[in-house]
Simulated assay, not measured.
Amino acid sequence: MEDLDFLKKICEVDAPSGREDWLYSIIEDGFKEFGNITMSKMNNICIHKKGKSSSKIMIMAHADEVFLMVNEISKEGFLKFKAVGIDPKSLVSQEVVIHGKERIKGIVALKPAYEDKDKNKIKMENLYIDTGYNFEKLNDLVNIGDYITLKRNMSQLLNENICGKAVDNRASIAAMYICAAELKNVTSDLDVYFVCSCQEEVGHRGAGMASYEIKPDIGIAVDVTFDGGMFGDTDRENKLGEGPVICIGPNIHSKLKNRIIETADRHNISYQVEVEPGNTGTDAWDIQTAVGGIPTLLISIPIKYMHTSVEMVNLGDIRNTGRLLARFIQELKENELEGLFCF
């Protein structure tokens, strides 16, 4: 299927925070038929689809993925590293790619249990990367500060579930792709800006940048959220395969939230809800307070095993997220905005 092929492509490309430009050519190739594509100085990628009015809606999904960085090259020929957003337990025995002067494959290694007296405590400082090179060769190819990304191809599992690395948040970019395809032959009232934002994993920094540049009337962040099953967040009730998750809380504009729920009900699109009484930890947090305040929604795709190399989502959830966004945009009229924004 076309949307699955697109998802596979964007998940298997490496684009850590600060190097979202490595994803640009695939985004450009995928979205070029839907609007005008530009990239900002800090790597926010924007697809602009012109509407009938001057009012604007911004749909945002972050492009960056969690990553490692080289911070030491040992005389024995191993790499030490620092991590962003990754649990050390999930790194043991994983394949990685070091982005030095050339792409170098490596494995994350740990002392065998029979040699490690502290074997039950896996700490980042006890992990190292083995490339097979000696110090001289490694020192020639790798610099301190070079990026390291997880190496994993996407796998299809049962019941339309898929897993791989960087599914957070390329699944949401795939949902935007589906939304854009649904709107391809539709001219909406509002200008639509699809944004693949930069540096979310290091503090959702691209969200503020794009919000100030575009100045949208409405902002919708699309991200992933923890499932509530085994090994998930048992305080939540989110389940893979039961639809997009609509967030409720002070980060979310209550009238827009009601409107998108009505849209889902009207079109028989299954959805779930979750409560976030504080910081949602997503681009929505920064969109809301930019440019004097932007009415904001957060729509999430349930995910298992977040920030590992085997992040799992359901294709039906991705497609329903795209469909819901498309119906919401298609039915929204400029003359409704004033009433929607008034409490």
Rank of each mutant, 00 (worst) to 15 (best):
K9M: 06
M60R: 00
I107T: 03
I301D: 11
E311A: 12
F343T: 10
G164E: 08
D130K: 01
K165D: 12
T38A: 07
E20G: 03
V186A: 07
E242Q: 14
F343S: 13
G293Y: 05
H253C: 15
Y305V: 00
E125M: 05
C163W: 09
C11G: 14
R103E: 14
S211K: 07
A63P: 03
D118M: 09
A284I: 02
Y305G: 08
I37R: 05
I261W: 12
M42V: 10
P112D: 07
N120G: 12
P302M: 11
L298I: 05
I294M: 08
K49N: 08
I214S: 02
L141E: 12
V275M: 15
H48Y: 13
N169A: 07
S25Q: 08
N126P: 00
D87I: 02
T308I: 04
S25G: 06
G241M: 12
Q330V: 01
T296V: 06
V202Y: 07
L256C: 08
A83N: 14
G278Q: 00
N139P: 03
L150P: 04
L23I: 11
A221K: 05
G278C: 02
A15G: 12
V70W: 00
E72S: 03
T225S: 11
V70H: 03
C247D: 12
T282L: 08
Y128L: 08
M209W: 08
D140W: 00
I107H: 01
E2L: 12
K80S: 13
M60W: 00
V84M: 14
I47C: 09
K41A: 12
V108Q: 02
I57P: 06
I57K: 01
F343M: 11
L337R: 01
E336L: 02
N314R: 05
E262Y: 14
V192H: 00
N314Q: 10
A264Y: 15
P244A: 13
K101W: 09
N320P: 02
K80Q: 07
K80G: 01
E2M: 08
N71C: 05
